[in-house]
Every structure is written in C-alpha cells, then in structure tokens.
C-alpha cells in the first residue's frame, strides 16, 4: 500500500449530507472484476444530465476545480452499500483525502484499506472550508498526518485525531493481512479451543 504522509491539494466542496455509495458509484459499474478504472464513473448520475451530456450545475464538472485532491462533504458520507468500489472510484479520480463531519462505518474502514485518509472535523469548520473553497476554486489545504494538523495558507490551523493504529498503517503503508498473518501462533491457539457448530 502506498504510504500517506503529507499532502497539499485543492479542495472540492460537496455541500451535501448523507452522500451514499450508490451516488459515489452506481451499481451498474460494479460488474468489473478489477480494482482500477472506476474514477471515470465517480458520481456518474450527478455528473450527467438525463441525455448523457455533462451537467454544468454539478461541481465536479466545473473546470476551475480540476486537479482537486481533497473532497470536503456533509455528514454521514459514504452511507449505504459496502462497495469498496466507492473509495476505489474516489482514489482513482484523485481524491485520497476526504473530510466530513461524520462517515459511515464501512466506507471509513474501506478508505483505510486503500491508503486513503477520512478526516472528521466539526461541522462549523467544514462550513468554513466549504465557504472558502466555493468562493475561491484555487483554495487549498495542507494535511499533515504525522502531526495531525490541517492548515491553509491563511489563518486556518486545526488539529484532527485519528486512531493511532490506523495512522501508523497509513504512514508506513502497511499490509493489514501481512500483519495479521504474523499472529499465526495466536490464531492457531484460538482455533484449537474455539468450536464452531
């Protein structure tokens, strides 16, 4: 897994609550057997008008935000289906950092599995970031995972917390399965006393 340390990137503000994984990537694109190439379908239904042409109202189609790498959204981001295709699509499109007031549990876990960083911040700070990046499409944030600080080039400096083990895994780019396999003797021991009917 690719290490996550520090990033500086443009912000894409997506001011919506309860963005579900069916919106992040609709089910019809889940038929592929690869992990890659899902970015082109990110927010597919919102990006297109019924006739298939780009929806000019949707922020992802606004060229001024091209190259954004930090997605900032409303609460309960990633709710619904467990599809890991959702973080795959976000990552593939270029969003490795997602900031929201809260995340759905499975989506959050799936992000960590892919070296992506979901950050929880207070709604009031999110509102401020969304306001700034809506006014100025070049607005960018620096996210420093090691020190747990997000800052912009102006006055904003805010600390965020993240589970210490998840942080360690992201910083080192660790393979979760390899770590668990190193507990082989403990697993064997557990299996010898654990009966499954």
């Amino acid at each position: 897994m690719e290490k996550y340390n520090k990033t500086n990137g443009k912000v894409l503000p997506l001011d919506r609550a309860n963005v579900d994984t069916d919106q992040i990537i609709p089910a019809k694109y889940l038929k592929r057997v690869e992990r890659t190439g899902f970015g082109q379908y990110l927010f597919d239904a919102w990006r297109k008008l019924p006739d298939g042409t780009p929806n000019p109202e949707f922020i992802l189609n606004d060229d001024r935000y091209n190259g954004a790498t930090i997605l900032v959204a409303g609460p309960n981001f990633g709710s619904g289906s467990s599809r890991e295709h959702a973080p795959w699509a976000l990552n593939d499109y270029g969003f490795r950092t997602i900031i929201a007031p809260s995340f759905a549990d499975i989506f959050r876990n799936n992000c960590f599995q892919n070296g992506m960083l979901p950050i929880v911040l207070d709604q009031a700070i999110i509102d401020k970031i969304i306001e700034k990046s809506s006014k100025n499409p070049d607005y960018s944030l620096t996210v420093d995972l090691e020190s747990g600080v997000i800052s912009d080039s102006e006055e904003l400096t805010i600390e965020f917390t993240i589970d210490s083990f998840k942080k360690h895994c992201l910083l080192e780019g660790l393979d979760d399965i390899g770590l668990t396999l190193s507990e082989e003797s403990m697993i064997k021991n557990f299996e010898s006393r654990h009966v499954i009917s």
Binding site: R35, R83, I106, D176
Partner: peptide, 8 residues
Amino acid sequence: IGTSEVEH
C-alpha cells in the same frame, strides 16, 4: 465489510 476485508 469491503473487498479488502473479504480478502483479509
């Protein structure tokens, strides 16, 4: 769970 966890 997600696919990475399925693999796990």
